[in-house]
Design a protein around this nucleic acid. Structure first.
Lengths: 342, 342
DNA sequence: GCAGTTAATGAATCGCATG
DNA sequence: CCATGCGATTCATTAACTG
């Protein structure tokens, strides 16, 4: 924590430091493995990962959004004889909380643990919605320091319209924090196409300022050299995963691969390690692995991890499995031996 | 204040209630006047407005963004002989603050005063940037109650690129709160054009869901009737005021009329009263007046109010002027008689 | 008159020079 | 050494101008 701000969120019983879970990983994680899946409470796993020497360059956290609902997995199966598609519901994740206080306490513990795992060039990206983002941002300012705040990225999508007496919500928020604002950041500049109005006026060429004798800018001119486009901004228009898309897994709240591709491309180099403590259906894992970034995913839902493993297997990737065990359980329930899947 | 949340922002010396300024308006404001300009501290003016019986249906607040800079007005004049254009700097507004605490304290007092002035169907819209929006949102949740939060509107614009090792910021945030979530809200549904992908698949016709015998949606069909577009979402792509646009006043941080038009159209009906405590160059006033909404603007900068008055005069509108005077000054400096401008 | 071209400059951001 | 200032960067937008 660099500079703790004087303005903080307060609630009865707030405590950012907590008793360590004393978690262990069985077997230990190999930092160079292309993909590692850890089953268990992500707080236990994150604490256990502190024993690793190597840090992570990007941590992407996609926690529950405090919706107060249970989210189910849709399992679609085609009957081989009739050809009919049947749907059934599997376990997704539960997003019920006693209160916003409990939600934030749980999240703060994870963010804090992730902070300790980042390299100096590393960054954390928190995927939230506009109802919780503000509380989470104030919390992160306290945990990271406000000068570590890098961007509020707006993910703008389109969806089936619903009648309501309000502007329909069509965006999520991704908060990006860097571990150390004084370190040279990992950042690959990406570009997006020029605005239609700019193309109409200037064409595809780069613009150059022309400065007069008095030092003031007189006008601009167009170069022969084609522009690479405009530097990517913090509002991203990316389609949601279509209900019939090939990448669709049936897992609830699945994020599009295009979103993760962009994030990983901008914030890491090949070989940099990526972490996803809420792995879900494994979008981060699939994309990172494909892009040559070793990745560690954590989830407490075994069905979700099976889905991840199958998805990665389809990409022709081997998966290393591990299990996070808190101290209290370590003697009561001995873990099964390591398995190598795929 | 409906339901105070347990999670609040805390800082040393925080106090949301403060000694009343005992402000008075000279002359008193006439609720039916198409445009009223009040010169003085907006906190004093807002308190004085409480004596009005009629409330406001929309309050748009565009406070300083806590940038730590002074913003100047650019005054352009064409020399009638040479035809040359000369530029000089006038007073804009000062955005220096001792600390974020002071900034938030000042803002909280204004928000609180505005809250008291809203009709039950009314709403407040706070224009901020993504560095301060999160603190302001938590503050508003405390002042209005979290269930009064309606929307985080993202204003996405395009501007000149700058090299930086981060995603360039290309959005502002507008927080919308309703006074009473149980009251029937003022809300006119607006529409935006269909997405290109939708037009490609479905054309311009309206879509209707076709539901099967089991209650599940089977497919959609396209109607003859052309679609009005999709209901307006909470991400608005609107161009900034161009450097040479006719609506440009030279006042810093001027907001585009298109933004205010959309807001006023969605949140008010003709005849509803609109309030802008940070009037600046008078965009809200100009748009509201044109749309037949009586509007009250407050600013402490006399130059800004002159600009507002001139802008409204160009629209052929008369302006009623008033002055906000705090108790401490009421005897020391007697106010000049009312003036009718335009 | 209409379409295509030119002009002007911004709630920016970084880096280096200056106090 | 830290705060401040100014040059360089080069897209977006609409009014004014030109043919």
């Amino acid at each position: 924590m660099v500079g703790a701000p004087k303005i903080t969120l307060q609630w009865p019983g707030k405590a950012l430091s907590r008793a360590p879970t004393g978690g262990r990983l069985t077997p230990a994680v190999c930092p160079d493995a292309p993909v590692t899946l850890i089953e268990g409470d992500n707080l236990v796993a994150l604490e256990a990962l502190q024993q690793d020497a190597a840090g992570f360059t990007l941590a992407y956290l996609d926690p529950p959004f405090f919706t107060g609902r249970s989210h189910h997995r849709v399992i679609r199966q085609r009957d081989p004889e009739s050809g009919q598609i049947s749907r059934s519901l599997g376990r997704g994740f539960d997003d019920h909380w006693e209160s916003l206080e409990h939600y934030l306490s749980a999240l703060a513990a994870r963010i804090s643990a992730v902070h300790a795992l980042l390299t100096p060039q590393g960054c954390l990206v928190l995927h939230v919605d506009p109802k919780t983002s503000h509380y989470v941002k104030v919390l992160c300012d306290e945990l990271f320091g406000p000068e570590c705040f890098a961007s509020e990225i707006v993910w703008r999508y389109r969806r089936w319209p619903s009648k309501q007496r309000n502007f329909q919500r069509v965006h999520d928020v991704l908060l990006r924090y860097v571990k150390d604002p004084k370190a040279e950041p990992r950042f690959q500049q990406l570009y997006e196409p020029l605005a239609p109005s700019t193309r109409a006026t200037w064409g595809e060429g780069q613009q150059r300022a022309v400065v007069g004798a008095d030092g003031r800018r007189v006008r601009s001119s167009t170069l022969e050299q084609p522009s690479r486009g405009v530097p990517l901004g913090d509002v991203w228009e990316i389609g949601i995963v279509a209900p019939v898309a090939k990448e669709r897994t049936g897992y609830p709240t699945q994020k599009p691969e295009a979103l993760l591709t962009r994030l990983i491309e901008a914030c890491t180099l090949p070989g940099d390690r990526v972490l996803d403590p809420y792995a879900g259906s494994g979008t981060t894992l699939a994309v990172a692995a494909r892009m040559g970034r070793p990745v560690v995913g954590i989830d407490e839902n075994r069905e979700a991890l099976e889905l991840c493993a199958a998805r990665l297997r389809r990409q022709g990737l081997g998966v290393r499995r591990s299990r996070a065990v808190p101290r209290s359980l370590r003697q009561a329930r001995p873990t099964s031996p390591a398995r190598l899947t795929g």
